[in-house]
C-alpha cells in the first residue's frame, strides 16, 4: 500500500509544484518584460504583484466562453486539452532531485524513472503540437488555420534538430535514462555536457525555442500578422489552458536543457548533497533557462517564416547530423 501512497504523494507534489511554477511564469513574463522596458510591471495584487496569477485565473474563470459559428465543437473543445496534456505528461520523468525518503520509503524525486525517459520526454512533448493544429483548424478562422499550419511545419522541422542534439548527448553517456545522463555529468563543473557538447547545447537550446513556440520563433501566434494565431477564437478557460500548456512545455524544455547539459540536480563538487540542495540546484539551473526564454522574447524580433525554415533545414539539421557523426566517431575511436 505504501508504495502506491508514495507514488501518489510524489505525483501530487511534483505536479502541483510545476503548475505553481507555470503560474509564476505568467507573472515572471510580465515582470521581466516590464523591467526590460524600464517599467515596474504588475505590483497591485499582493506584495510585488505575487497574487497576479491568481487574479488572472479568477478573471479567466468568469469570462464568457465563445465557440465561433461554423467551428467544429468536438475538436474545438478537445484542442486545449491536447495542447496542455502532453506537456504535463512529460513532467513525469524529469529528475528533480536524487534520493529522498517519503513516508519512510527511500525513493527518488521524480514521478517515474525508466530506462527510456529521455526518449519519452521528446516523444510525448512532440504531441503538444496537435492541440495547436487542431485548435487552429477547428476554429473556422483563417488566422487560426494559418497559425496551426505554421506550428505544424515548424514543429516537424525543429524536432529533428532537437532529437539529433539529444542523440549526441545520449551517445556521450551511453544511455537514454535521464538519471544515467545526470550521473555521467557528476563531479565538477567541467564534467557538464555543456563543455563536451557545445554545439549540441546550442542546437538543443534553439530547437527548444522553436518547439515551445516562443520568440523569436512564435509563428503560431504572431500577433501582427495573425491576430493571435491558433488561439484567436479562444476565450475563457480554454484560452488559459493553452497558456498553461505553453508554460508547462517551457518548464519541461528548460529542465530538459538543464538535465542534459548542466547536470540536472547534480551539485558540482558535492556528490553527497542532500535532496533539498539538489532540488535547489535543479531549480536554479532550470530557472536560468526559463529566464532565458523571457529574456530572449523581449530582446529579439520575430524571424520571417522562410528564415525560420531555412535555419531549421539548411543550418541546424546538417550541423546536428555532423555533430552526431563526429561524436560517434570520437567515441568509437577512443
Amino acid at each position: 500500500m505504501t508504495p502506491v501512497l508514495v507514488m501518489l504523494l510524489k505525483t501530487l507534489l511534483i505536479f502541483g509544484g510545476v503548475i505553481t511554477l507555470a503560474a509564476g511564469m505568467t507573472l515572471a513574463e510580465r515582470k521581466v518584460s516590464a523591467w526590460i522596458q524600464w517599467r515596474i510591471g504588475p505590483n497591485r495584487v499582493g506584495p510585488w504583484g505575487t497574487l497576479q496569477p491568481l487574479a488572472d485565473g479568477v478573471k479567466f474563470v468568469f469570462k464568457e466562453e465563445l465557440i465561433p459559428d461554423g467551428a467544429n465543437p468536438l475538436l474545438f473543445r478537445l484542442a486545449p486539452m491536447l495542447a496542455a496534456g502532453p506537456a504535463m505528461m512529460a513532467i513525469a520523468v524529469i529528475p528533480f532531485a536524487g534520493e529522498i525518503t517519503l513516508l519512510g520509503q527511500p525513493t527518488t524525486l521524480s514521478i517515474a524513472d525508466f530506462p527510456l525517459s529521455a526518449l519519452y520526454v521528446v516523444a510525448v512533448s512532440g504531441l503538444g503540437v496537435y492541440g495547436v493544429i487542431l485548435g487552429g483548424w477547428s476554429s473556422n478562422s483563417k488566422y487560426s488555420l494559418l497559425g496551426g499550419l505554421r506550428a505544424s511545419a515548424q514543429m516537424v522541422s525543429y524536432e529533428l534538430a532537437l532529437i539529433l542534439a539529444l542523440l549526441s548527448v545520449v551517445v556521450m553517456s551511453g544511455s537514454l535514462d535521464l538519471r544515467k545522463i545526470v550521473e555521467a555529468q557528476a563531479g565538477g563543473l567541467l564534467q557538464w555536457n555543456l563543455w563536451r557538447q557545445p554545439l549540441a547545447f546550442l542546437l538543443f537550446l534553439l530547437a527548444t525555442f522553436a518547439e515551445t513556440n516562443r520568440h523569436p520563433f512564435d509563428f503560431a501566434e504572431c500577433e501582427p500578422e495573425l491576430v493571435g494565431g491558433f488561439h484567436t477564437e479562444y476565450s475563457s478557460m480554454k484560452f488559459a489552458l493553452f497558456f498553461i500548456g505553453e508554460y508547462v512545455a517551457m518548464i519541461v524544455m528548460a529542465s530538459m536543457t538543464a538535465t542534459l547539459f548542466l547536470g540536472g540536480p547534480e551539485v558540482p563538487y558535492w556528490p553527497a548533497a542532500p535532496w533539498f540542495v539538489q532540488l535547489a540546484t535543479f531549480l536554479l539551473k532550470t530557472g536560468f533557462f526559463l529566464f532565458l526564454f523571457l529574456w530572449v522574447r523581449w530582446t529579439l524580433p520575430r524571424f520571417r517564416f522562410d528564415q525560420l525554415m531555412g535555419l531549421g533545414w539548411k543550418v541546424m539539421l546538417p550541423l546536428a547530423l555532423l555533430n552526431v557523426f563526429v561524436t560517434g566517431l570520437v567515441i568509437s575511436l577512443f
Binding site: L127, S152, I163
Partner: peptide
C-alpha cells in the same frame, strides 16, 4: 518493447501524422 513504443509515438504520432495534418489542412 518500450523502445519501439516510444519510437512509434515519436516518429509516427509526433512527426508523420503532423505532416499528414499539414497537407490535409493545406
Amino acid at each position: 518493447f518500450p523502445f519501439l513504443a516510444a519510437t512509434q509515438l515519436l516518429v509516427y504520432a509526433g512527426a508523420i501524422m503532423v505532416l499528414f495534418l499539414f497537407v490535409i489542412m493545406l
